[in-house]
C-alpha cells in the first residue's frame, strides 16, 4: 500500500487569485505565438489527386451530358451496397469526348442514381469498376447534414464537370497500367 501525502498549499496558493493570473498570463502569451495546429474548418484539409473523397459522376464539358450509362457495375462492385441505379431509354447522341466520337449514340442513361453517403466507405471500387469513366472519387471530403435522407445523394448532387475531376482522372490512368487508352478518349 502506498500512501500519497496531499500537497500543503502555500498562502499565495490559498489566496487563489495569483494562481489564476499566472494561468491567464500563460494563455495570453500563447495567443501571440505562432499556431501549431490546423485551423479547421477555416483552413481546409490539403487535398490532391491521390485523395479518395466522395464519389462523383462526371459530366462532359461540351454539353453537360452525363457519361454514366447506368450499367450497374459500380452498384455490383460496391461492398457497402451504397449505390442504387435505375436506367432509362435515351435518344441522346453520343457526345464527342475530347474531339472524338467514341460511340454512335448512348442508348441508356440513369433515371436515378443514388449514393447513400452514410453507407459509402470511400473505397473507390466504383471508380475502378466503371467501364465508361463516369464515376470518380472527388476531393470532396466534408459530409454533414441535419437528416439522413438528405445524405442519400441523387444525380443533382453527384454531377461534376469532368474538368473538375481531371487531376484524379489523370492520376488513375497513371497508376493503372491496364487502362491504356489514348488521352483523347479520357
Amino acid at each position: 500500500m502506498v500512501i500519497v501525502k496531499r500537497k500543503q498549499l502555500s498562502f499565495s496558493e490559498k489566496l487563489y487569485l495569483p494562481e489564476i493570473l499566472k494561468g491567464m498570463s500563460m494563455t495570453f502569451r500563447a495567443m501571440f505565438k505562432p499556431r501549431t495546429t490546423r485551423q479547421y474548418p477555416e483552413e481546409p484539409l490539403p487535398v490532391n489527386e491521390v485523395t479518395r473523397g466522395q464519389p462523383r459522376l462526371a459530366t462532359n464539358d461540351e454539353d453537360g451530358s452525363i457519361r454514366c450509362v447506368s450499367c450497374g457495375l459500380c452498384e455490383a462492385a460496391c461492398p457497402a451496397y451504397a449505390i442504387t441505379i435505375d436506367g432509362q431509354d435515351t435518344d441522346r447522341n453520343a457526345i464527342t469526348i475530347g474531339g472524338d466520337v467514341t460511340e454512335k449514340f448512348i442508348e441508356r442513361e440513369p433515371e436515378s442514381f443514388d449514393i447513400d453517403m452514410l453507407r459509402c466507405i470511400l473505397c473507390g471500387f466504383c471508380e475502378e469498376a466503371c467501364p465508361k469513366d463516369a464515376i470518380f472519387m472527388s476531393d470532396e471530403l466534408e459530409l454533414a447534414d441535419f437528416n439522413r435522407n438528405d445524405l442519400i445523394y441523387g444525380l443533382d448532387k453527384l454531377k461534376r464537370p469532368v474538368s473538375q475531376l481531371r487531376p484524379r482522372i489523370d492520376y488513375i490512368y497513371k497508376v493503372n497500367e491496364r487502362w491504356q487508352a489514348p488521352s483523347s478518349t479520357r
Partner: peptide, 9 residues
C-alpha cells in the same frame, strides 16, 4: 424490359 433492370439484380 429495355433498360428497366440489370439481370444480376
Amino acid at each position: 424490359f429495355r433498360f428497366k433492370a440489370r439481370v444480376w439484380n
